[in-house]
Design a protein around this nucleic acid. Structure first.
Length: 881
RNA sequence: AGGCACGUAGCUCAGGGGGAGAGCGCCACCCUGACACGGUGGAGGUCCCGGGUUCAAAUCCCGGCGUGCCUACCA
């Protein structure tokens, strides 16, 4: 019967590829908008086309895949919408780098040819990240794969832009924006990342025009003084109530600047006098507007001082700073400089220091949109998990500023706006033929493109065909859940909320699950420069995808970062192998035949394992639904390894190997097959590959495990009595094993065991299970004695309802046994002390709930009973010493 | 400057008002007919510190200390 059906250990490589191809071929990932099941939908956070699978993707997509596979097994019609993001700046950078290696710039090609080149790049490399997601096992509906630059999505972008413009929610104007001098584009506030930088605070003398001394101004960016158009002091500052003059001369340049008074200036920072550079600082811009000051831009798009900078024109901004400070020093105008730590914006793409510059840009007026988006979370239409992120979301949404959406790059959705020589601005869904104002056909389209996040914000509905009314939208919108990292809560989630509510009139998703970051083993953020990156693809090669996915799930506790190390993955690789070997055992014993029906009269271990399997499936299901992936994973792990493998398989060996009782043997096979089948299904969302492989080998299984039902519906098999009785048996076996271990009795030695029980029920159970106890504890035929009596010269254990004795004269070292008993007594005593104290506390007896008091009493009684019995044993042992 | 999280076994962390848990590591024994990527047994904790609430606090509240992270226009 026991023939070799599987190799001794699991080899993931071929298995994974084969089953993924099978799933795709069978169309098992495809969502049907006309499907009967209730809808469950997720849109993937689209990775950048330039992306390479990293730990963050792996975690994020593993979670989505767990949800989707689980829901499919429950009978939902599942749509997991995949795709990629055109990632404007990042992609443009990649292609520009490629050009640079050919000695060219994008300007050599010109706009159209460059864009052509990006598409070519995408055709060649854009599928990489998608294939890597497939490697992970992601069950996305690839037939619907989208790209943010696709025609359909572009149409959605234009529609949204035009409608927002028409409603006055998009405007164009001159404001201070964050400019990246390297990427040559404006950035939104979010794309400017603040970082602490060691700089200087420079105190510069601005001479009064009348020559009577000077006003000292403090600044961190002295080079911008070229653009100063005023100096401001606080009107209440006692130091500046009476000034020598109301005009100063701009150092190095000599331009006359008015001294203005504005309460914005703080009196307790620097010198209390503030230089005003409206074209290069947001606050100065505001003050400038208020006081009608001129805005003088002194830097060009490269961060180089322009013609307005006079003698400094042509110098790079950092060079200019150095030169100007030297000149100020020379002229005695640099009063002092001190080290100063402050946070400065950096481009989130290239880390270049961002320059605040006055510029004409397009903005989304987010106030009204944010209001709606705020409300939808407040009233629970969208739930953010874990809930602490809701606070962060509120915080940001309430203090939100208008969103600069124009970018001065070439790769992206070109803004659908045209300028006429007559000055008319036309915003339109389609390319206009002529100017509605003057009739001219000399129209030029805006050269700016939109922020990539503008199109991502539409993702949940643009991917489903909006603005058309599609079956996909009616079946799958709003989506059920969005799974993402907190780092794009504002960038993406918040904006999808705004756009979804605005254009669909409904939230884009009912749940948002925010997961943590994957770090290295010591808690450091993984980064190429630190060299501590663990590459998921290498990990999957080495340990198998299933082990990797399970590791991610097992460590994904809400609100805590995941510290990843190969050692940990190896641990779960062992688990996969354990499953493999449990299958090996199961399949060897099942043979070729389809397993029969579950027995009418199951044994205790059958009832127990069915009960446990039923409970565990429910617990795991509940945990998945509540995004407690770690609990789901560890519940499954615990059950499979420590209940099914450690106990059930061992117990089942008895009847399986006993050819004298064919009926029992068949019955056991049936239970084994059933529980094993459930266990595979239970694990499938976490470990899709190995479970499919084993499922296909299970006699009687039909089709893919993906379509098998989730094993959560077996309430009728939950059997507390069986669980209790089995507990008793386990306890006895444990006690014998403990005595063996502690007394150094060799594992091969078959020992005699004598049992007694105070309770008839317990006694009956143990007698019925004698054969199992005998085999798992390696004992001779069990002997029985009356409660209160014990065999001479034995080691003993006092269990809750049972006494266990191992009479082994010659093998038991009595002083060792004495020590063991004393240790046991001390442990019990320590354990029970808090309960004893409680029971002497009048307050406790009076105020604690009755059930709690009863429980404490029972606890103490049980412990004391054990103590009595142990002491009897102790006295006896001592008498032999 | 504000906000949020975290501090539990050697390590990594679950748990979250009434019996201190897991994985890995460690110690001992064992290649028992699924698995040495394994089995059996064992050792190991002032649940950061100090107050408070409560009959009862690792758990709730306040205050420290420490560690991360996020947001912010004070030059």
């Amino acid at each position: 019967m026991a023939q070799e059906t599987l190799p001794k250990s699991y080899e993931p490589a071929q298995v994974e590829e084969r089953w993924y191809a099978y799933w795709e071929r069978e169309g098992l990932f495809t969502a049907d908008p006309a499907g009967k099941g209730p809808a469950y939908s997720i849109v993937i956070p689209p990775p950048n086309v330039t992306g390479q699978l990293h730990m963050g993707h792996a975690l994020n997509n593993t979670m989505q895949d767990i949800m989707c596979r689980y829901k499919r097994m429950l009978g939902y019609e599942v749509l997991w919408m995949p795709g990629t993001d055109h990632a404007g700046i990042a992609t443009q950078n990649v292609v520009e780098r490629q050009l640079a290696s050919e000695g060219k710039t994008r300007h050599d090609l010109g706009r159209e040819a460059f864009i052509e080149r990006v598409w070519e790049w995408r055709a060649e490399y854009g599928g990489k990240i998608i294939n890597q997601l497939k490697r992970l096992g992601s069950s996305c509906d690839w037939s619907r794969e989208r790209f943010t630059m696709d025609e359909g999505l572009s149409k959605a972008v234009r529609e949204v832009f035009v409608r927002l413009y028409e409603e006055g929610l998009i405007y164009r104007g001159d404001y201070i924006i964050n400019w990246c001098p390297r990427c040559h584009t404006a950035l939104s506030d979010l794309e400017s990342e603040h970082e602490e930088v060691k700089g200087g605070l420079y105190h510069i003398r601005y001479p009064f025009k009348n020559g009577k001394g000077y006003l000292v101004v403090a600044t961190t960016r002295p080079e911008t003084l070229l653009g100063d158009t005023a100096v401001a002091v606080n009107p209440d500052d006692p130091r500046y109530q009476e000034l020598a003059d109301d005009m100063v001369l701009l150092p190095l340049i000599g331009r006359e600047l008015p001294i203005i008074r504005d309460s914005y200036v703080s009196t307790d920072f620097g010198t209390g006098a503030l230089k005003i550079t409206p074209a290069h600082d947001p606050n100065d811009f505001m003050i400038g507007q208020k006081h009608g000051l001129e805005s003088l831009r002194v830097m060009d798009d490269n961060g180089t001082i322009n013609q307005a900078g006079g003698p400094y024109a042509g110098l790079d901004r950092f060079e200019a700073r150095k030169v100007m400070l030297a000149d100020l020093e020379k002229q005695g105008l640099l009063e002092k400089q001190e080290d100063y730590l402050h946070s400065v914006g950096h481009c989130y793409r290239c880390k270049t220091m961002v320059e605040p510059i006055l510029s004409k840009q397009w903005f989304v007026k987010v106030g009204p949109l944010a209001e709606e988006a705020l409300g939808a979370v407040r009233d629970g239409r969208t739930k953010i998990v874990p809930a602490q992120w809701e606070k962060t979301y509120y915080e940001w949404m309430t203090n939100i500023r208008d969103w600069c959406v124009s970018r001065q790059i070439w790769w992206g959705h070109r803004i659908p706006a045209w300028f006429c020589s007559c000055g008319e601005l036309i915003v339109s869904r389609t390319t206009p033929e002529k100017c509605p104002a003057c009739g001219s056909s000399e129209l030029t389209q805006e050269t700016d493109v939109l922020d990539t996040w503008f199109s991502s914000a539409l993702w949940p509905f643009s991917t489903m065909g909006w603005p058309d009314q599609t079956p996909e939208l009616s079946k799958f919108y709003p989506t059920s859940c969005l799974v993402t990292g907190f780092d794009i809560l504002f960038f993406w989630v918040a904006r999808m909320m705004m756009m979804g509510l605005k254009f669909m009139g409904e939230v884009p998703f009912t749940d948002v699950y925010i997961h943590a970051l994957v770090r290295d083993a010591s808690g450091q953020k993984m980064s190429k420069s630190k060299g501590n990156v663990i590459d998921p693809l290498i990990v999957m090669d080495e340990f198998g995808t299933d082990a990797f996915r399970f590791t991610l799930a097992a460590f994904a506790a809400q609100g805590r970062d995941i510290k990843m190390s190969e050692e940990r993955i190896a641990g779960y690789r062992n688990f996969v192998n354990k499953i493999w070997n449990a299958a090996r055992f199961t399949l060897m014993n099942l043979g070729e035949d389809e397993p029969g029906q579950l027995p009418e009269e199951p044994t205790l271990e059958d009832r127990w394992i069915l009960s446990r399997a039923s409970r565990v499936a429910q617990e795991v299901g509940r945990a998945i639904e509540e995004y407690r992936f770690n609990e789901a994973a560890s519940t499954a792990y615990q059950f499979v390894w420590h209940e099914f493998c450690d106990w059930y398989l061992e117990l089942a060996k008895g009847p399986l190997y006993d050819d004298s009782d064919r009926k029992r043997q068949e019955a056991t096979r049936a239970v084994l097959a059933e529980v094993y089948s459930r266990l595979l299904r239970l694990l499938h969302p976490f470990m899709p590959f190995v479970t499919e492989e084993l499922w296909q080998r299970l006699p009687g299984s039909e089709g893919s495990i993906m379509k098998a039902p989730w094993p959560g519906d077996h309430d009728d098999q939950i059997d507390p009595q069986a669980e209790h009785d089995m507990g008793l048996v386990m306890e006895v076996i444990g006690a014998v094993r403990n005595i063996r271990g502690e007394m150094s009795i060799s594992p091969g030695k078959v020992v005699p065991v004598v049992l007694s029980a105070s309770d008839d029920g317990a006694l009956e159970v143990l007698k019925a299970q004698a054969a199992r106890i005998q085999s798992l504890a390696k004992t001779q035929e069990l002997a029985w004695t009356k409660e209160g009596e014990q065999p001479a010269k034995s080691a003993g254990a006092a269990l809750s309802e049972v006494n266990v004795f191992v009479p082994l004269e010659g093998l038991v070292d009595f002083s060792a046994e004495e020590a063991r008993l004393e240790k046991e007594l001390a442990k019990l005593d320590k354990e029970i002390t808090p309960s004893r104290k409680k029971l002497t506390n009048q307050g406790f007896l009076a105020k604690a709930p009755e059930a709690v008091v009863a429980k404490e009493k029972a606890k103490v009684a049980a412990a004391e009973d054990k103590i009595t019995r142990l002491k009897e044993s102790l006295v006896r042992v001592q008498s032999f010493r």
